[in-house]
Design a protein around this nucleic acid. Structure first.
Lengths: 218, 218
DNA sequence: TAGATTGTTAATCGATTAACAATC
DNA sequence: TAGATTGTTAATCGATTAACAATC
Protein backbone atom coordinates (compact mmCIF):
# COMPACT_ATOMS: atom_id res chain seq x y z
CA UNK A 1 0.00 0.00 0.00
CA UNK A 2 2.77 2.41 -0.96
CA UNK A 3 1.24 5.79 -1.56
CA UNK A 4 3.29 8.31 -3.44
CA UNK A 5 2.73 10.87 -6.08
CA UNK A 6 -1.01 10.84 -5.57
CA UNK A 7 -2.34 13.84 -7.43
CA UNK A 8 -3.95 16.71 -5.59
CA UNK A 9 -7.13 16.19 -7.57
CA UNK A 10 -7.50 12.66 -6.26
CA UNK A 11 -6.87 13.69 -2.66
CA UNK A 12 -9.45 16.40 -2.97
CA UNK A 13 -12.05 13.81 -3.94
CA UNK A 14 -11.27 11.28 -1.21
CA UNK A 15 -13.28 12.92 1.59
CA UNK A 16 -16.28 13.02 -0.70
CA UNK A 17 -16.04 9.28 -1.35
CA UNK A 18 -15.78 8.82 2.38
CA UNK A 19 -18.93 10.82 2.96
CA UNK A 20 -20.95 8.93 0.38
CA UNK A 21 -19.73 5.58 1.67
CA UNK A 22 -20.68 6.63 5.21
CA UNK A 23 -24.18 7.40 4.01
CA UNK A 24 -24.44 4.07 2.22
CA UNK A 25 -23.28 2.37 5.39
CA UNK A 26 -25.98 4.16 7.39
CA UNK A 27 -28.52 3.01 4.83
CA UNK A 28 -27.39 -0.56 5.35
CA UNK A 29 -25.96 -0.99 1.85
CA UNK A 30 -23.39 -3.80 1.87
CA UNK A 31 -21.84 -3.64 -1.57
CA UNK A 32 -21.70 -1.16 -4.39
CA UNK A 33 -20.28 -1.15 -7.89
CA UNK A 34 -18.32 1.73 -9.33
CA UNK A 35 -21.15 2.40 -11.77
CA UNK A 36 -23.81 2.57 -9.05
CA UNK A 37 -21.63 4.89 -7.01
CA UNK A 38 -20.85 6.97 -10.08
CA UNK A 39 -24.55 7.52 -10.64
CA UNK A 40 -25.07 8.75 -7.09
CA UNK A 41 -22.02 10.97 -7.03
CA UNK A 42 -22.29 12.22 -10.60
CA UNK A 43 -18.78 11.30 -11.56
CA UNK A 44 -17.63 8.66 -14.00
CA UNK A 45 -17.20 5.06 -12.88
CA UNK A 46 -13.80 5.18 -14.53
CA UNK A 47 -12.71 7.98 -12.28
CA UNK A 48 -13.83 6.14 -9.17
CA UNK A 49 -11.88 3.02 -10.14
CA UNK A 50 -8.82 5.05 -11.12
CA UNK A 51 -8.92 7.04 -7.90
CA UNK A 52 -9.27 4.02 -5.64
CA UNK A 53 -6.57 2.09 -7.46
CA UNK A 54 -4.06 4.73 -6.49
CA UNK A 55 -4.22 3.23 -3.03
CA UNK A 56 -4.80 -0.44 -3.75
CA UNK A 57 -7.30 -2.89 -5.13
CA UNK A 58 -10.21 -2.52 -2.79
CA UNK A 59 -12.77 -4.15 -5.04
CA UNK A 60 -13.47 -7.56 -6.42
CA UNK A 61 -14.22 -8.37 -10.03
CA UNK A 62 -17.80 -9.33 -10.62
CA UNK A 63 -18.82 -8.11 -7.16
CA UNK A 64 -17.88 -4.50 -6.74
CA UNK A 65 -16.78 -2.91 -3.47
CA UNK A 66 -17.71 -3.88 0.04
CA UNK A 67 -19.04 -0.64 1.51
CA UNK A 68 -17.85 -1.14 5.06
CA UNK A 69 -14.38 -2.26 3.99
CA UNK A 70 -13.92 0.58 1.52
CA UNK A 71 -15.18 3.10 4.06
CA UNK A 72 -12.70 1.84 6.63
CA UNK A 73 -9.79 1.80 4.20
CA UNK A 74 -10.43 5.34 2.95
CA UNK A 75 -10.75 6.40 6.59
CA UNK A 76 -7.27 4.97 7.22
CA UNK A 77 -5.85 6.73 4.18
CA UNK A 78 -7.30 10.00 5.45
CA UNK A 79 -5.84 9.38 8.89
CA UNK A 80 -9.25 9.14 10.53
CA UNK A 81 -8.41 5.90 12.32
CA UNK A 82 -6.83 7.79 15.18
CA UNK A 83 -7.27 10.95 17.24
CA UNK A 84 -5.66 14.24 16.27
CA UNK A 85 -5.19 16.81 18.99
CA UNK A 86 -6.06 20.26 17.82
CA UNK A 87 -5.87 23.74 19.26
CA UNK A 88 -7.77 26.79 18.13
CA UNK A 89 -5.87 30.04 18.08
CA UNK A 90 -8.18 33.03 17.94
CA UNK A 91 -11.33 32.72 20.03
CA UNK A 92 -13.46 35.13 18.03
CA UNK A 93 -16.80 34.17 16.56
CA UNK A 94 -15.40 31.73 14.05
CA UNK A 95 -12.95 30.17 16.49
CA UNK A 96 -15.67 29.63 19.06
CA UNK A 97 -18.03 28.28 16.42
CA UNK A 98 -15.45 25.71 15.33
CA UNK A 99 -14.77 24.80 18.96
CA UNK A 100 -18.46 24.21 19.47
CA UNK A 101 -18.76 22.03 16.43
CA UNK A 102 -18.90 18.56 17.92
CA UNK A 103 -18.89 16.72 14.58
CA UNK A 104 -15.15 17.21 14.14
CA UNK A 105 -14.60 15.35 17.38
CA UNK A 106 -16.53 12.39 16.02
CA UNK A 107 -14.06 12.20 13.13
CA UNK A 108 -11.17 12.15 15.58
CA UNK A 109 -10.25 15.83 15.66
CA UNK A 110 -10.17 16.71 19.32
CA UNK A 111 -9.99 20.33 20.41
CA UNK A 112 -7.80 20.36 23.51
CA UNK A 113 -7.15 24.07 23.81
CA UNK A 114 -8.45 27.48 22.75
CA UNK A 115 -6.27 30.58 22.82
CA UNK A 116 -6.68 34.30 22.40
CA UNK A 117 -4.85 37.50 23.27
CA UNK A 118 -7.94 39.26 24.57
CA UNK A 119 -7.79 39.20 28.42
CA UNK A 120 -11.58 39.58 28.56
CA UNK A 121 -11.90 36.04 27.25
CA UNK A 122 -9.52 34.57 29.81
CA UNK A 123 -11.17 31.63 31.57
CA UNK A 124 -14.33 31.77 29.48
CA UNK A 125 -15.25 28.22 28.59
CA UNK A 126 -16.35 26.95 25.21
CA UNK A 127 -17.80 23.45 25.31
CA UNK A 128 -15.98 22.87 28.55
CA UNK A 129 -12.64 24.08 27.22
CA UNK A 130 -11.31 27.21 28.93
CA UNK A 131 -9.93 29.96 26.71
CA UNK A 132 -6.27 30.51 27.55
CA UNK A 133 -3.99 33.44 26.82
CA UNK A 134 -1.62 33.02 23.89
CA UNK A 135 1.46 33.51 26.07
CA UNK A 136 0.67 30.14 27.61
CA UNK A 137 0.99 28.47 24.19
CA UNK A 138 4.62 27.30 24.33
CA UNK A 139 4.14 25.57 27.65
CA UNK A 140 0.82 24.10 26.61
CA UNK A 141 2.32 22.62 23.47
CA UNK A 142 5.25 21.23 25.45
CA UNK A 143 2.84 19.45 27.80
CA UNK A 144 0.34 18.28 25.22
CA UNK A 145 0.68 16.55 21.91
CA UNK A 146 -0.67 19.26 19.62
CA UNK A 147 -0.76 18.14 16.01
CA UNK A 148 -3.00 20.70 14.38
CA UNK A 149 -3.44 24.41 15.01
CA UNK A 150 -6.58 26.05 13.71
CA UNK A 151 -5.88 29.69 12.97
CA UNK A 152 -8.94 31.88 13.32
CA UNK A 153 -7.22 35.17 13.88
CA UNK A 154 -6.75 38.33 11.85
CA UNK A 155 -4.52 38.07 8.81
CA UNK A 156 -2.07 40.56 10.30
CA UNK A 157 -1.25 38.23 13.19
CA UNK A 158 -1.66 34.86 11.51
CA UNK A 159 1.82 34.47 10.03
CA UNK A 160 3.66 35.53 13.17
CA UNK A 161 1.54 33.14 15.23
CA UNK A 162 2.09 30.29 12.79
CA UNK A 163 5.84 30.77 13.00
CA UNK A 164 5.72 30.74 16.79
CA UNK A 165 3.63 27.58 16.77
CA UNK A 166 5.95 25.99 14.22
CA UNK A 167 8.89 26.74 16.50
CA UNK A 168 7.03 24.96 19.29
CA UNK A 169 6.67 21.89 17.09
CA UNK A 170 3.22 22.20 15.53
CA UNK A 171 3.34 20.71 12.06
CA UNK A 172 -0.12 21.27 10.62
CA UNK A 173 -2.18 24.43 10.24
CA UNK A 174 -5.82 24.81 9.39
CA UNK A 175 -5.74 28.40 8.28
CA UNK A 176 -8.84 30.62 8.14
CA UNK A 177 -6.90 33.88 7.91
CA UNK A 178 -6.96 35.69 4.57
CA UNK A 179 -3.40 34.99 3.71
CA UNK A 180 -1.50 32.22 1.95
CA UNK A 181 0.25 30.75 4.92
CA UNK A 182 1.74 27.91 2.89
CA UNK A 183 3.76 30.36 0.81
CA UNK A 184 4.99 32.38 3.76
CA UNK A 185 6.09 29.59 6.08
CA UNK A 186 9.75 28.73 5.87
CA UNK A 187 10.30 25.00 6.10
CA UNK A 188 8.10 22.02 5.61
CA UNK A 189 4.63 22.36 7.06
CA UNK A 190 1.15 21.16 6.26
CA UNK A 191 -1.18 24.04 5.55
CA UNK A 192 -4.82 23.78 4.57
CA UNK A 193 -6.27 27.16 3.73
CA UNK A 194 -9.97 27.90 4.12
CA UNK A 195 -10.67 31.22 2.48
CA UNK A 196 -14.36 31.85 3.05
CA UNK A 197 -14.37 35.23 1.36
CA UNK A 198 -12.95 33.69 -1.80
CA UNK A 199 -15.67 31.09 -1.73
CA UNK A 200 -18.26 33.83 -1.46
CA UNK A 201 -16.66 35.66 -4.40
CA UNK A 202 -16.91 32.57 -6.58
CA UNK A 203 -20.57 32.37 -5.66
CA UNK A 204 -20.93 36.01 -6.58
CA UNK A 205 -19.17 35.45 -9.90
CA UNK A 206 -21.52 32.62 -10.83
CA UNK A 207 -24.54 34.57 -9.68
CA UNK A 208 -23.50 37.56 -11.74
CA UNK A 209 -23.08 35.41 -14.85
CA UNK A 210 -26.40 33.74 -14.17
CA UNK A 211 -28.22 37.03 -13.80
CA UNK A 212 -26.75 38.53 -16.95
CA UNK A 213 -27.92 35.45 -18.87
CA UNK A 214 -31.44 35.55 -17.43
CA UNK A 215 -32.13 39.25 -17.50
CA UNK A 216 -35.89 38.87 -17.64
CA UNK A 217 -35.81 40.66 -14.31
CA UNK A 218 -37.40 44.02 -13.66
CA UNK B 1 -15.99 41.78 -22.79
CA UNK B 2 -17.97 38.67 -23.64
CA UNK B 3 -17.26 36.06 -21.00
CA UNK B 4 -18.18 32.51 -21.80
CA UNK B 5 -16.73 29.13 -21.30
CA UNK B 6 -14.31 30.37 -18.67
CA UNK B 7 -12.91 27.28 -17.05
CA UNK B 8 -13.63 26.50 -13.44
CA UNK B 9 -9.90 26.52 -12.69
CA UNK B 10 -9.61 30.13 -13.84
CA UNK B 11 -12.62 31.26 -11.82
CA UNK B 12 -11.20 29.58 -8.76
CA UNK B 13 -8.05 31.68 -9.09
CA UNK B 14 -9.75 35.04 -9.66
CA UNK B 15 -10.45 35.87 -6.00
CA UNK B 16 -6.83 35.21 -5.20
CA UNK B 17 -5.67 37.68 -7.84
CA UNK B 18 -8.13 40.13 -6.37
CA UNK B 19 -6.69 39.66 -2.91
CA UNK B 20 -3.10 40.14 -4.03
CA UNK B 21 -3.99 43.20 -6.07
CA UNK B 22 -5.82 44.65 -3.07
CA UNK B 23 -2.69 44.22 -0.99
CA UNK B 24 -0.53 45.84 -3.67
CA UNK B 25 -2.99 48.71 -3.77
CA UNK B 26 -2.74 49.12 -0.01
CA UNK B 27 1.02 49.14 -0.33
CA UNK B 28 0.75 51.95 -2.84
CA UNK B 29 2.06 49.93 -5.79
CA UNK B 30 0.87 51.50 -9.03
CA UNK B 31 1.90 49.02 -11.69
CA UNK B 32 2.97 45.41 -11.78
CA UNK B 33 4.16 43.05 -14.46
CA UNK B 34 2.95 39.50 -14.79
CA UNK B 35 6.40 38.25 -13.82
CA UNK B 36 6.55 40.34 -10.64
CA UNK B 37 3.09 39.18 -9.67
CA UNK B 38 3.97 35.59 -10.53
CA UNK B 39 6.89 35.73 -8.12
CA UNK B 40 4.69 36.96 -5.27
CA UNK B 41 1.90 34.53 -5.92
CA UNK B 42 4.07 31.56 -6.84
CA UNK B 43 2.34 30.87 -10.10
CA UNK B 44 3.72 31.23 -13.62
CA UNK B 45 3.56 34.58 -15.38
CA UNK B 46 2.14 32.71 -18.33
CA UNK B 47 -0.80 31.56 -16.27
CA UNK B 48 -1.52 35.06 -15.04
CA UNK B 49 -1.55 36.45 -18.56
CA UNK B 50 -3.65 33.57 -19.86
CA UNK B 51 -6.13 33.89 -17.00
CA UNK B 52 -6.58 37.64 -17.37
CA UNK B 53 -6.90 37.44 -21.13
CA UNK B 54 -10.00 35.33 -20.72
CA UNK B 55 -11.71 38.56 -19.72
CA UNK B 56 -9.93 41.15 -21.82
CA UNK B 57 -6.61 42.84 -22.35
CA UNK B 58 -6.09 44.61 -19.07
CA UNK B 59 -2.39 45.22 -19.54
CA UNK B 60 -0.16 47.25 -21.75
CA UNK B 61 2.91 45.97 -23.60
CA UNK B 62 6.12 47.25 -22.16
CA UNK B 63 4.35 48.55 -19.05
CA UNK B 64 2.52 45.75 -17.33
CA UNK B 65 -0.76 46.12 -15.46
CA UNK B 66 -2.10 49.14 -13.64
CA UNK B 67 -2.86 47.78 -10.18
CA UNK B 68 -5.88 49.93 -9.43
CA UNK B 69 -7.45 49.35 -12.83
CA UNK B 70 -6.90 45.60 -12.74
CA UNK B 71 -8.23 45.40 -9.19
CA UNK B 72 -11.36 47.27 -10.18
CA UNK B 73 -11.93 45.18 -13.29
CA UNK B 74 -11.53 41.87 -11.49
CA UNK B 75 -13.88 43.23 -8.84
CA UNK B 76 -16.47 43.86 -11.54
CA UNK B 77 -16.00 40.39 -12.99
CA UNK B 78 -16.57 38.91 -9.54
CA UNK B 79 -19.67 41.02 -9.07
CA UNK B 80 -18.18 43.00 -6.20
CA UNK B 81 -19.15 46.35 -7.69
CA UNK B 82 -22.58 46.15 -6.16
CA UNK B 83 -24.33 44.98 -3.01
CA UNK B 84 -25.70 41.47 -2.61
CA UNK B 85 -28.41 40.92 -0.06
CA UNK B 86 -27.88 37.77 1.91
CA UNK B 87 -29.80 35.84 4.53
CA UNK B 88 -28.44 33.27 6.92
CA UNK B 89 -30.59 30.24 7.56
CA UNK B 90 -29.54 28.40 10.67
CA UNK B 91 -28.49 30.61 13.58
CA UNK B 92 -26.25 28.09 15.31
CA UNK B 93 -22.64 28.83 16.15
CA UNK B 94 -21.46 28.93 12.57
CA UNK B 95 -24.43 30.95 11.34
CA UNK B 96 -23.94 33.52 14.06
CA UNK B 97 -20.20 33.63 13.46
CA UNK B 98 -20.78 34.38 9.78
CA UNK B 99 -23.36 37.01 10.65
CA UNK B 100 -20.84 38.66 12.93
CA UNK B 101 -18.16 38.68 10.31
CA UNK B 102 -18.15 42.28 9.16
CA UNK B 103 -15.58 41.78 6.40
CA UNK B 104 -18.14 40.22 4.06
CA UNK B 105 -20.16 43.40 4.29
CA UNK B 106 -17.15 45.40 3.12
CA UNK B 107 -17.07 43.28 -0.03
CA UNK B 108 -20.73 44.05 -0.65
CA UNK B 109 -22.36 41.00 0.92
CA UNK B 110 -24.98 42.40 3.25
CA UNK B 111 -26.69 40.17 5.77
CA UNK B 112 -30.26 41.40 5.97
CA UNK B 113 -31.83 38.51 7.86
CA UNK B 114 -31.06 35.57 10.11
CA UNK B 115 -33.46 32.68 10.54
CA UNK B 116 -33.81 29.62 12.74
CA UNK B 117 -36.47 27.19 13.85
CA UNK B 118 -35.49 27.30 17.51
CA UNK B 119 -38.02 29.54 19.34
CA UNK B 120 -35.45 30.24 22.06
CA UNK B 121 -33.50 32.34 19.54
CA UNK B 122 -36.51 34.38 18.49
CA UNK B 123 -35.71 38.07 18.73
CA UNK B 124 -32.10 37.54 19.76
CA UNK B 125 -30.00 40.02 17.85
CA UNK B 126 -26.72 39.33 16.10
CA UNK B 127 -24.87 42.46 15.06
CA UNK B 128 -28.13 44.34 15.21
CA UNK B 129 -30.00 41.81 13.09
CA UNK B 130 -32.83 40.04 14.92
CA UNK B 131 -33.11 36.28 14.49
CA UNK B 132 -36.45 35.45 12.92
CA UNK B 133 -38.37 32.20 12.78
CA UNK B 134 -38.13 30.26 9.53
CA UNK B 135 -41.87 30.37 8.96
CA UNK B 136 -41.46 34.08 8.31
CA UNK B 137 -39.11 33.35 5.40
CA UNK B 138 -41.55 33.43 2.47
CA UNK B 139 -42.92 36.81 3.48
CA UNK B 140 -39.46 38.17 4.22
CA UNK B 141 -38.20 37.15 0.80
CA UNK B 142 -41.26 38.66 -0.85
CA UNK B 143 -40.55 41.98 0.83
CA UNK B 144 -36.80 42.01 0.44
CA UNK B 145 -34.50 41.38 -2.46
CA UNK B 146 -32.73 38.28 -1.20
CA UNK B 147 -30.09 37.09 -3.61
CA UNK B 148 -28.03 34.69 -1.55
CA UNK B 149 -29.02 32.27 1.19
CA UNK B 150 -26.29 31.00 3.49
CA UNK B 151 -27.23 27.57 4.75
CA UNK B 152 -25.76 26.80 8.14
CA UNK B 153 -28.18 24.16 9.24
CA UNK B 154 -27.99 20.41 9.72
CA UNK B 155 -27.64 18.31 6.61
CA UNK B 156 -30.98 16.62 7.26
CA UNK B 157 -32.84 19.91 6.87
CA UNK B 158 -30.65 21.67 4.31
CA UNK B 159 -32.16 20.27 1.11
CA UNK B 160 -35.75 20.82 2.16
CA UNK B 161 -34.94 24.38 3.18
CA UNK B 162 -33.08 25.06 -0.06
CA UNK B 163 -36.06 23.90 -2.08
CA UNK B 164 -38.38 26.14 -0.09
CA UNK B 165 -36.07 29.10 -0.59
CA UNK B 166 -35.76 28.30 -4.28
CA UNK B 167 -39.54 28.31 -4.58
CA UNK B 168 -39.52 31.76 -3.00
CA UNK B 169 -37.10 32.96 -5.65
CA UNK B 170 -33.67 32.67 -4.06
CA UNK B 171 -31.17 31.80 -6.77
CA UNK B 172 -27.86 31.37 -4.97
CA UNK B 173 -26.90 29.18 -2.03
CA UNK B 174 -23.80 29.28 0.09
CA UNK B 175 -24.02 25.82 1.54
CA UNK B 176 -22.21 24.76 4.72
CA UNK B 177 -24.28 21.61 5.26
CA UNK B 178 -22.55 18.29 4.63
CA UNK B 179 -24.43 17.48 1.51
CA UNK B 180 -24.03 18.15 -2.19
CA UNK B 181 -26.84 20.59 -2.64
CA UNK B 182 -25.93 21.26 -6.26
CA UNK B 183 -26.67 17.65 -7.20
CA UNK B 184 -29.93 17.49 -5.30
CA UNK B 185 -31.55 20.73 -6.44
CA UNK B 186 -33.87 20.41 -9.38
CA UNK B 187 -33.49 23.30 -11.78
CA UNK B 188 -30.85 25.88 -12.35
CA UNK B 189 -29.32 27.31 -9.19
CA UNK B 190 -25.99 28.63 -8.07
CA UNK B 191 -24.53 26.54 -5.28
CA UNK B 192 -21.20 27.06 -3.61
CA UNK B 193 -20.42 24.30 -1.16
CA UNK B 194 -18.15 24.84 1.83
CA UNK B 195 -17.40 21.48 3.34
CA UNK B 196 -15.24 22.21 6.37
CA UNK B 197 -14.97 18.60 7.46
CA UNK B 198 -13.60 17.63 4.05
CA UNK B 199 -11.03 20.38 4.32
CA UNK B 200 -9.98 19.02 7.70
CA UNK B 201 -9.71 15.52 6.25
CA UNK B 202 -7.38 16.74 3.50
CA UNK B 203 -5.25 18.32 6.19
CA UNK B 204 -5.29 15.03 8.06
CA UNK B 205 -4.31 13.12 4.90
CA UNK B 206 -1.31 15.36 4.31
CA UNK B 207 -0.32 15.26 7.95
CA UNK B 208 -0.50 11.48 7.95
CA UNK B 209 1.71 11.26 4.84
CA UNK B 210 4.11 13.75 6.37
CA UNK B 211 4.39 11.84 9.62
CA UNK B 212 4.96 8.50 7.93
CA UNK B 213 7.80 10.07 5.94
CA UNK B 214 9.43 11.67 8.98
CA UNK B 215 9.07 8.93 11.53
CA UNK B 216 11.98 10.07 13.65
CA UNK B 217 9.32 10.45 16.34
CA UNK B 218 9.17 8.50 19.56
C1' DT C 1 -19.59 -21.91 -16.45
C1' DA C 2 -21.56 -17.32 -17.74
C1' DG C 3 -22.14 -12.75 -16.17
C1' DA C 4 -20.51 -9.01 -13.89
C1' DT C 5 -17.30 -5.80 -12.66
C1' DT C 6 -12.79 -4.69 -11.44
C1' DG C 7 -7.93 -3.17 -12.44
C1' DT C 8 -5.25 -1.20 -15.89
C1' DT C 9 -3.69 0.31 -20.36
C1' DA C 10 -4.59 3.39 -24.16
C1' DA C 11 -6.97 7.47 -26.11
C1' DT C 12 -8.82 11.85 -25.36
C1' DC C 13 -9.41 16.00 -23.43
C1' DG C 14 -8.27 20.16 -21.02
C1' DA C 15 -5.18 22.98 -18.53
C1' DT C 16 -0.60 24.75 -17.95
C1' DT C 17 3.66 26.33 -19.66
C1' DA C 18 6.79 27.98 -23.19
C1' DA C 19 7.77 30.81 -26.93
C1' DC C 20 7.53 34.74 -29.61
C1' DA C 21 5.48 38.22 -32.58
C1' DA C 22 2.96 42.44 -31.65
C1' DT C 23 3.19 46.77 -29.64
C1' DC C 24 3.51 50.16 -26.09
C1' DT D 1 14.23 54.12 -31.35
C1' DA D 2 15.37 50.26 -28.03
C1' DG D 3 13.66 47.75 -24.22
C1' DA D 4 10.10 45.75 -21.91
C1' DT D 5 6.19 43.19 -21.48
C1' DT D 6 1.88 41.94 -23.11
C1' DG D 7 -1.44 38.99 -25.82
C1' DT D 8 -1.68 34.81 -28.15
C1' DT D 9 -0.34 30.69 -30.57
C1' DA D 10 1.97 26.33 -30.15
C1' DA D 11 3.96 22.62 -27.26
C1' DT D 12 3.75 20.06 -23.17
C1' DC D 13 1.95 18.10 -19.43
C1' DG D 14 -1.45 15.97 -16.52
C1' DA D 15 -5.99 14.45 -15.60
C1' DT D 16 -10.12 12.27 -17.22
C1' DT D 17 -12.53 9.00 -19.89
C1' DA D 18 -12.93 4.90 -22.72
C1' DA D 19 -11.97 0.29 -23.60
C1' DC D 20 -11.02 -4.25 -22.54
C1' DA D 21 -8.46 -8.14 -20.74
C1' DA D 22 -8.23 -10.27 -16.22
C1' DT D 23 -10.77 -12.57 -12.86
C1' DC D 24 -14.08 -13.21 -9.26
Amino acid sequence: MEEKGISRAVIKRLPRYYRYLGELLEDGVERISSSELSERMKVTASQIRQDLNNFGGFGQQGYGYNVRYLYTEIGKILGLDRTHNMIIVGAGNLGQALANYAAFERSGFKTIGIFDINPVLKGVSVRGIPIRMTDELPEFIRNNNVEIATLTLPKAKALEMAKLLADCGVKAFWNFAHTDLNLAMPGNYIVENVHLSESLMRLSYNLTRYESEHKQQS
